[in-house]
Nucleic acid binder design. Sequence first.
RNA 1: GGUCGGGUGGCCGAGAGGCUAGGCAGAGGUCUGCAAAACCUCCCACAGCGGUUCGAAUCCGCUCUCGACCUCCA
Length: 495
Amino acid sequence: MTRQLKLFNSLKREKEEFIPIQEGKIGMYVCGPTVYSDVHLGNCRTFVSFDIIYRYLVYAGYKVRYVRNITDVGHLLDDGEDRMSRGARLDQLEPMEVAQRYTVGFHDMMRTFNTKAPSIEPRATGHIIEQIKMVEDILARGYAYVKEGSVYFNTPKFIADGYPYGELSGRVIDELLNESRDNLKNQDEKNHPSDFALWIKASEEHLMRWSSPWSVGFPGWHLECSAMSTKYLGETFDIHGGGNDLKFPHHENEIAQSMGSCSKAPANYWLHTNMLLLNGKKMSKSEGNTISPAELFSGNSKHITKGYSPMTVKFFFLQAHYRSPLDITDEALQAAEKGYKRLIEAIKALDSITLAFSLSPTIKDKEILNIIEESISHMDDDFNVPNSLASVFELISIVNSLKDGHIAATDVSIDCWNNMKSHLTDIVYSVFALNNDLEAESSKSLDGLMKLILELRADVRDRKDWLTADKIRDSLKDAGVQVKDGKDGTTWSLI
RNA sequence: GGUCGGGUGGCCGAGAGGCUAGGCAGAGGUCUGCAAAACCUCCCACAGCGGUUCGAAUCCGCUCUCGACCUCCA
């Protein structure tokens, strides 16, 4: 049994009933990172959002194939140089070395945020053959032309044949054409400014290059996603996701490429995540209004007063809907940290609560079961995590009340309690995937604790009170801490 | 300039014609040797100005304001 979902489809700009192509199965493609520098915090929010979407789809009973690419070629700079190559020159590294380094960094960060690896994570450079094939298909159907060894998509013909160029991004076709006419003179080889490159002939210095029927070159900006989504999910699949800044031109061109090559739309539902702001403004490196994940964790930034753990940051993300912009402020992060802590403390306490619950159903059961169902149905409604979290917090209050005896255990049945317990654990740990990283903090307090104990013990030793000093050492050993008295003082470690 | 999407209480953020969002902060209370935690109660907001309606934070218009895209961008 799968749950019935409603998704906000960017294509229609409204919520729709979700109907998968194959019952019970979902193919989902999400545009992944370009690995030419460290992951941007905004990337993290987007991928955390889609991770929760992926996890929820599985939770809701669907069998999901989740494909998220790694872009390691193909993005042009203003000067026509490939991004990967530029990184390579600056760093004196092989292009693939740059890609590898930042791919590893990206994966580390995804692990830090406790996201699941996608089912397939294809790389653009590993699918050059598929991309060339797609260009051939588009050429064969007349929606592309070759110029000086490069291949361009023919948007005017595509539009003239009645295909929906501009539908996703809400761009008016006439306007696109008009706007284009103005800058026509600036264009080099393209017949029309709104045309875009499918294959680009490599200049002499270009490091990343492959043979093709048209030239030794490299694939265009948008082609990889079309080729790889088709390969792994089929010509038409269920869900395509990405940041909303990719709507145009990237996603629009993906649609054009797919329809141009086989006349079928690539995805039925398009999901777009919104942007992250910092102190009410967009993040911008040039204006210094930016913060990296590492800075956020360490507190090493002028924008925040302290560091916030990855799960605190994740919880902060979860409090906003994926389609809303989210403003990062120190105050908001502090609030998130406290809320997250309250949530996790209660979840952690779940197992230690053993009370004499009622053996038969109660009135309170109904209320609790209701809240449980709400926390799920909010997720059915376009993955409304904030609303679902609100329901979870209502359950948390009930858990704490039971724990402290403000609600009598006899008012709740044992079945209902077990139900609530497993549901809370499931949704918090498996769907929201907020893994308890409070342990890291407790090791901080352990540090402080040990410092204090060892200082006191040092005083005792100065007084040559060996009995007490040894008692401390022995007791600590029993507690799992090994005390090591050395020449330069005393250290300790966990056994 | 064009297109699209926002502006919600002290802060962050859901909601989207009549019905409690939630978190954080603040006030009072219960508990406690004192704290902390937890629980209870209170704090009833929707940028401004018009309009539609029995009724608008929610619909319409205008104004102000923020953001995204239009060029690589999650």
